[in-house]
């Protein structure tokens, strides 16, 4: 009961022109997919399950923040007007949940940046970060470099002091931790994707039916995730 109430309040506060009964009566599913809260939930789930960092949902985060602020004001008004405690706590609950989603989404991203800071700052994953995340990433790298420099690297012989390479004779940067893209993820497609080729060779073809659950290697469905055609769970 609580969750429906919370869902209804959030869509009411979030999108214009949605009014209680008529819409919920028609088609729950399609409405549920278009509210910002649902979109944020999806972005959050994808971000949590994907081994590498995904594109920052700038517009969505902006909208979510505005709506959260609106909700906060509503709750404050309710408290001042002495509205029924139950109503207030339902709104508060909805507010808390949205805030959790937003915080967790941003947090998961920062923690991914922490984990793969060197990899991200050297590849085009860099362009997936928000301005503020880029700053964070730079500061992470600086702090880490300084730490490794002074405790180990500066004390090693010449030619072995690079943070990215094992030695000067390494041709590539072979000391950079990278996300494991061939890890398995659970995913569900929204619409029927149809026959999908899992590897370059074309040996394995899966017919992705909508709303079915699959366990596949992340790297083979990477493009579908980025294109928003499939969701991670």
């Amino acid at each position: 009961m609580v969750s429906t109430a919370a869902g209804a309040t959030s869509s009411g506060a979030g999108l214009e022109g949605e009014e209680g009964e008529s819409i919920w009566g028609e088609d729950d599913a399609s409405i549920a997919e278009t509210t910002d809260v649902e979109l944020l939930k999806r972005a959050w789930r994808n971000e949590k399950a994907a081994p590498e960092i995904l594109l920052f949902e700038a517009g969505l985060v902006q909208r979510a923040r505005e709506q959260i602020q609106l909700l906060e004001e509503t709750v404050e008004d309710f408290v001042e007007n002495g509205t029924d405690d139950l109503i207030v706590s339902l709104y508060q609950m909805d507010l808390d949940r949205s805030l959790f989603l937003l915080r967790s989404y941003l947090r998961v991203r920062l923690q991914k940046i922490e984990k793969y800071m060197f990899h991200i700052s050297r590849t085009d994953l860099w362009n997936r970060l928000s301005e503020q995340e880029k700053k964070f990433s730079k500061r992470c790298v600086n702090a880490m470099e300084k730490h490794l420099e002074q405790s180990v690297l500066s004390r090693l012989p010449y030619g072995y002091q690079s943070i990215l390479k094992q030695s000067i004779s390494s041709e590539e940067d072979d000391m950079v931790p990278e996300p494991k893209l061939d890890t398995f993820v659970f995913c569900k497609s929204k619409g029927a994707v149809g026959a999908f080729q899992l590897d370059d060779v074309g040996d394995e073809i899966v017919d992705l039916v909508s709303d079915d659950l699959y366990v596949l290697r992340y790297k083979s469905i990477k493009g579908l995730v980025e294109g928003g055609r499939i969701d991670l769970v």
Partner: peptide, 10 residues
């Protein structure tokens, strides 16, 4: 300390 500061400023 440095990393904390990075998180805090973020």
């Amino acid at each position: 300390k440095n990393h904390s500061a990075a998180i805090e400023s973020s």
